[in-house]
């Protein structure tokens, strides 16, 4: 103490840095906030080739109100990671639709080569489940590639 200017020197040393130990806490708070607020999808992607359309629009609905129905090339149907036969689609969708208070939007994710008979059967099932809003999931096609086609 007596060697280095008696206390005054020490005081100035304590205030010379911004305390950065709490910065990590702030960063972790942010990290945890983003991890908690991120909504993960409840189904895995099926291997399909997307159809392309220039009029593709984003679905104006919350992610939790969108139900994906995957239709593969061979006509097999996947809802929430489960394979269902065609006749059961309306029985599966109807309770989900009722639970969402009729806000549910069905996103039909059909392979571009799926024969239309399967897509028609899906639509008939959805009509009997009472669903009104349906989206045919597509990839955005640029006008440039469209002109070349």
């Amino acid at each position: 103490m007596s060697i280095r200017g008696g206390g005054l020197d020490r005081k100035s040393k304590a205030s010379s840095e911004i305390p950065n130990s709490s910065m990590a806490d702030i960063a972790f708070l942010l990290l945890i906030f983003f991890m908690v607020s991120t909504v993960f999808r409840n189904d895995k992607e099926r291997p399909i080739t997307w159809a392309a359309a220039a009029a593709t629009e984003k679905i104006d609905e919350k992610a939790k109100n969108i139900l994906n129905i995957w239709v593969e090339r061979d006509g097999s149907i996947w809802i929430n990671d489960m394979n269902y036969p065609m006749e059961e689609v309306s029985d599966v969708v109807a309770p989900l639709y009722a639970r969402s208070e009729r806000h549910l939007v069905i996103s039909i994710r059909g392979d571009r080569e799926t024969p239309y008979s399967f897509m028609d059967a899906i639509q008939k099932e959805l009509v009997s489940a009472g669903v009104v809003r349906v989206v045919f999931a597509t990839e955005l096609e640029r006008q440039m590639t469209r002109a070349r086609r």
Binding site: K58, S107, V132, F136
Partner: peptide, 25 residues
């Protein structure tokens, strides 16, 4: 670094397509 890593690796699903309104039964 962790925060940025998770932000970058989070893939948001492509919820887009052509909307149609089905007729009621």
């Amino acid at each position: 670094l962790l925060l940025v890593f998770f932000l970058v690796t989070t893939v948001f699903p492509k919820d887009k397509g052509l909307e149609v309104v089905l007729p009621e039964q």
